[in-house]
Design a protein around this nucleic acid. Structure first.
Lengths: 239, 239
DNA sequence: GGGCTAGTTAGTGTATACACTAATGGTCCG
DNA sequence: CGGACCATTAGTGTATACACTAACTAGCCC
């Protein structure tokens, strides 16, 4: 794939001075990541068909790695099998609400657990993220989403619970195509940052109950706003 | 005429006497299901290596469908990538407890939601399962596990929440190789049946709060017993 | 003119050959 | 006797050819 004259390239390469133990797994993963990103960003819209041959051409590889990537995406529920092949999944409003309901629960649990399991490094990282986000001036829609995701990911890590982590990661997939972030509504961004700070404060003091409660409220608020957005959307469609 | 030629080739390929003992339908899915069942049952033990060529031979297919199946199993977290290829995942006691913690939460939520969303058919099914399990006399270890799983699956369905369902199904995978069922300890089986009945009763009356509470207690009890089992196991290992 | 049927085709599923990489074992040198 | 180097090899990753199936189209019979 990388080089058609593979034998020659392989013979010449005996230098690996960059002593890093990185996974080095660059098989079909890159295709998977790329497709995933494009689906999540909406570049490949819901309902679009994903043809193996087309993708193989686009990525300059054979169907084999494309197939692997598609299989994984299907299993992540990002794609669904239609009459003919795979299509980007469409999510409806009902499902989005259900996702939020579950996520409220899980985030509360994560925060609660993080309060007891976090180490100094976790705390430092969370503090750093809060400070960094506070320093942003008029961040773009995209930046808000990214930094927010980063913060929550740090929270997830602080819980040191691979099971919860796995479910949360899987859950986030269900939220594809939520058109815009709740963090761009009114002064929600500033509000959310304050709530983040509250969560971190509770975690710092190892107050599991409070951490859970604060996190729960944080996500409930997000759910409310998401509902408003969905209503607006529906109204727009009907009117 | 290409089709006749193809048919002939296919026929010539698989002629092994007249006894058609094997279904010719080797969908990639069947391999996935088969492997999954063998892993869950322990027939393929934790830590075992899964070699593509070996499996391809065993199933009488090429590496391609085997690869697809393995990819899916890896994504389900049943396998993990080791130094060389894929291995059946080992789960440690810590993770089992974490799974129970999360499951307590999810089962409570499911029961609570089922109380509001269930229809008559759901209720009928749950009633039927409870009655059926009550009628069993001295069920085997395996039967206890199966019927219990069936009951909970029916509960999950009654919630009519695909998101919760997805997570619970995914979660159950984390419980592979929990050596024995908690339902074979003392009189836990009878106890559990009573608790099932309580859950169904609350769902019948559409009492979401009580359903959640009862279900939570049910799973907490299971967690306790699992912990006891794990302690016994650890003690046995230490001597 | 409408439904039924056969040919066509687009697209996936599978087999196989080849490329490549990391572990392994043996040998040589210190 | 021990450690580094090289050949071997086991096993995965990728490309490509082929098989098969379900949807489409065009014609045919009624």
């Amino acid at each position: 794939m990388r080089s058609t004259g593979a034998a020659g390239a392989a013979a010449a390469d005996d230098v690996r001075g960059d002593g890093a133990e990185r996974p080095m797994r660059h098989d079909g993963d890159s295709i998977h990541d790329e497709l995933r990103a494009q689906i999540l960003s909406g570049a490949i819209p819901p309902g679009a068909a994903l043809r193996e041959v087309v993708l193989a051409e686009r990525f300059g590889v054979s169907r084999t790695p494309v197939r692997a990537a598609l299989g994984r995406l299907e299993h992540e529920r990002l794609l669904e099998r239609g009459a003919r092949g795979l299509f980007v999944k469409r999510v409806d409003a009902r499902e989005v609400v259900q996702v939020y309901d579950v996520r409220i629960m899980l985030e509360a649990e994560v925060a609660s657990q993080a309060a007891t399991t976090r180490d100094d490094h976790d705390l430092e990282r969370l503090d750093g993220l809060v400070a960094r986000d506070r320093a942003l001036v008029e961040p773009s829609d995209r930046l808000r989403m990214t930094t927010n995701l980063e913060f929550h990911a740090a929270l997830w890590d602080a819980a040191h619970n691979p099971v919860l982590l796995d479910l949360l990661e899987r859950l986030s997939v269900h939220l594809i195509h939520t058109p815009s972030s709740t963090l761009s509504v009114g002064d929600r961004w500033v509000e959310a940052l304050d709530e983040h700070a509250l969560i971190v404060a509770a975690i710092r003091e190892r107050d599991a109950v409070r951490a859970g409660a604060v996190a729960r409220r944080h996500m409930q608020r997000a759910r409310e706003i998401r509902l408003d957005l969905l209503r607006l959307e529906v109204d727009a469609e009907l009117g």
